[in-house]
Write a protein that binds this DNA or RNA. Structure first.
Lengths: 254, 254
DNA sequence: CTACTATTCTATAGATCTATGGAACATGAT
DNA sequence: ATCATGTTCCATAGATCTATAGAATAGTAG
């Protein structure tokens, strides 16, 4: 049974090509960002704190593994994740880390405003309460991620502006904030800040990638909300759009 | 918003700890094997063609990432995958490779008796046909993987013994062979061999890990089959055991 | 064409990883 | 205790990876 051992080794080498991307923390960070929205090299370098040439080098590695694709716009190059399998893979990596590495939970906990301390709202609960008009859904990620895709009816209010724009939120409604995923800290920080101001605020259990992968509807664009009280907008679109949740089961390598 | 950048970097470093495991082809191969069944260091070194000390070194890396655990039995140490999240992660890696790397399909195709050439049977179809008593389910993985877990009612007939023990199979029944997963070549080779002998034979779409992750029942032990015609045994146990398929949806990082 | 911008390519010093032989360790048998 | 066996630890040469400066490239605007 050794006639194809070379080929078989080739196969594992191909898998390792992908593994190579996630062996470097910064590349994981980049991939995480790209699962939220496309970005230029410059923007990526800036938000990850890398020198431009270094960021570019990392992106080349990711491109050779075919995990990202590019689009040119004038003189700028925009990178994006190459397909939902990539996001699913990153998701599996996150899950695995949370399940197996106690350190991850410790880090989250050590941040005070962490995932463990903040009560989480499930997708189902969110849907129910939104339909009952009881909550405002808040997307606290940077604006460009919001416009690349968000929960229908959610308001965009990036964490960095939350404090300044607090008065845009109806004090009588509970806020459910969400961000990039279970390991992302934006929503927990937002919720902590809001509760510090006497508001009722919780976090969604998942981030947008999980929402999308669950087959729930995703809306694109900057949204129609100009910055008013945002009470009605916050629950309009989700009302009847619940999809049959085609849920591509986890092991489903078709 | 820079007060926790250090912590955030720590988080990605933790993820990279896991990534480190899948950056080396041999480690992926080891992990793949360990998702099927536990094995001693010696056995792992032998089936992967590594020197003993090298295999041990790789296993240490995997252990430090908490992806594998050990059990001592006398003087031997048995390694196993540390939880189903690990197998799910490996599955996501495989999926991603198949989806994004054309090379993977090419390699599979170049093997002649490949995945692409062999018609695949879905899980649902298998269940239906087994219940109708139309097929024999054949586990062509090595015997120790069979006894670590197999599809209920499946016969164990490792590929390496298939030719010699061909007469154990009822020529009138179609055979559905399965192995480790979509990238594994055991079942396709078995099906090709069988068809070369005039039998009707196909492959299951997935391997045992996918079956297990779908929440379908898995049977352990060496099986009661002594080596007779295996016509009835081949469909007894699956008859009424279909579980409600708790299907932990893909994005479900609870 | 020239100037300018965003990005990629090239070269390289320094850091990290890999395979492996041999020593050390743990367990079980004598 | 002594030995045998299976595994892990240690040291190290050679291979690979990383960050980064500087040069080259591609697109845009005059």
């Amino acid at each position: 049974m050794e006639h194809d051992s070379g080929r078989r080794a080739d196969l594992y080498e191909q898998l390792a090509r992908i593994g190579k991307v996630v062996v470097h923390p910064k590349r994981i960070e980049l991939l995480d960002l790209l699962c939220q929205a496309e970005r230029s090299v410059e923007a990526l370098a800036e938000t990850t704190g890398l020198k431009l040439t270094t960021a570019s080098a990392h992106l080349q590695v990711m491109r050779q593994a075919r995990l990202v694709e590019t689009r040119r716009e004038g003189t700028r190059v925009f990178y994006r994740a190459a397909g939902e399998e990539v996001c699913r893979f990153v998701g599996a990596l996150n899950d695995l880390a949370r399940a197996r590495l106690a350190e991850v939970d410790q880090i989250l906990r050590s941040l005070g405003t962490d995932a463990a301390g903040t009560e989480r709202v499930s997708r189902d609960e969110l849907l129910a309460r939104v339909q009952a008009g009881e909550v405002v859904v808040l997307d606290v990620r940077p604006a460009e991620e919001y416009s690349a895709g968000h929960i229908p009816g959610a308001r965009s209010l990036p964490l960095e502006h939350l404090e300044a724009r607090l008065d845009e939120l109806d004090p009588d409604l509970e806020v459910v904030a969400y961000c990039r995923g279970p390991l992302c800290l934006l929503a927990p920080e937002a919720a902590a800040l809001l509760r510090g101001r006497g508001r009722r605020a919780r976090c969604l259990e998942d981030g947008l990638p999980e929402w999308r992968q669950a087959g729930l509807p995703v809306e694109e664009g900057v949204g129609t909300d100009g910055g008013s009280s945002g009470r009605n907008e916050a629950r309009s679109s989700l009302r009847d759009r619940r999809t049959p949740r085609s849920s591509p089961a986890v092991g489903g390598r078709s």
